[in-house]
């Protein structure tokens, strides 16, 4: 055995000649992880989970799933890094600008009509783009002080990153473009909300004060609070149907009655057991309202 078995190549190249990863291999892997670390990946959607595992194997030149299993078994320090690597962290501010318009024009005014305050959970917040977009919207509506925002993710490393509220300058063009589309005004940019330092865009601290970040695993974690709004966009696409049902039950239980659930634009509750406890508020933007406990 080499002295340092875990070295990551920084330039990812997929090994196109690697043999297929078998389902039996993945089962052994998820079983080991469950037993040793109590994370449950068993019901992740197979196609994407397999791809993420292949990526880790290529990235660290493990060559086989067996090698990865051995490393995870013998090197607990590696586990957090492994979770970071298999978690998909692709996101942008104001993703799906039309959704943010619906949120500003319909959903938020509706909640605020009946309440003096608003609580929002961003489940699977990744590097924070979505929760900070929310803070900007609330600020522009003059209600940020009435809001309590909670952002959670399974990956501690990404939570640390999100807390910094700092984004690569190269992403800001798209973020700003989305923001302009959200306002239906291409001349509006995010410039006023950020300052630039060391090649990064740093969000103004007054936008971050009502946000709390915490690590939370949607699969294994319990219900920790109740919210008026839960956003869980493009997170459950990585789960199979069984797990989607299980997680949706938790999201349902985390909502006040008549609270809103928002999922990704290409997700749906149609195939889920819990669909009858929600009504569709906006089908195009996948906004649902809880109508039954």
């Amino acid at each position: 055995m080499k002295s340092n078995p875990i070295s990551k190549s920084y330039l990812y190249t997929a090994n196109d000649n690697a043999p297929d990863i078998e389902i039996a291999d993945l089962r052994r892997l998820t079983q080991l992880i469950k037993e040793k670390y109590n994370y449950d990946f068993k019901d992740y959607a197979m196609s994407s989970f397999k791809r993420r595992i292949k990526r880790v194997i290529d990235l660290y030149k493990f060559k086989t799933v067996d090698k990865l299993i051995t490393v995870l078994d013998t090197t607990p320090d590696f586990f957090e890094e492994f979770v970071s690597e298999i978690t998909v962290n692709v996101t942008e501010m104001f993703r799906d600008p039309t959704f943010w318009r619906v949120l500003k024009d319909q959903i938020l005014p509706n909640v605020l009509m009946n309440h003096d305050s608003i609580s929002i959970w961003h489940a699977g917040c990744s590097s924070g783009e979505e929760v900070y977009s929310m803070a900007i919207v609330l600020k522009e509506m003059g209600v940020l002080d009435k809001a309590k925002l909670v952002a959670t993710d399974i990956d501690s490393a990404i939570i640390d990153k999100a807390k910094r509220a700092t984004f690569p300058i190269k992403n800001m063009e798209l973020n700003s473009k989305n923001y302009g589309r959200f306002h239906d005004d291409a001349t509006r940019t995010l410039d006023g909300y950020f300052r630039e330092a060391n090649g990064e865009a740093i969000l103004n601290p007054d936008l971050t004060k009502n946000i709390s970040f915490r690590r939370h695993d949607l699969v294994q974690g319990g219900i920790f609070s109740k919210f008026d709004l839960v956003l869980c966009r493009n997170v459950m696409i990585y789960f199979n149907q069984t797990l989607q049902n299980n997680v949706l039950n938790k999201l349902h239980d985390s909502l006040f009655k008549y609270g809103y659930l928002i999922i990704g634009s290409k997700e749906s509750l149609i195939w889920c057991e819990i669909a009858n406890k929600f009504i569709v508020v906006n089908n195009e933007e996948k906004v649902y309202k809880k109508i039954k406990d």
Binding site: A45, M46, S47, S48, R51, R52, V88, V90, T91, N234, I237, Y238, N240, Q241, G264, K266, E267
Partner: peptide, 21 residues
């Protein structure tokens, strides 16, 4: 395949979408 999503097929003959890189 929808814009900005990968479109995959799962065993059991369903689609699954992904937003990875």
């Amino acid at each position: 395949a929808p814009a900005n999503y990968h479109m995959c097929v799962e065993l059991g003959n369903t689609f699954s979408l992904a937003t990875d890189g």
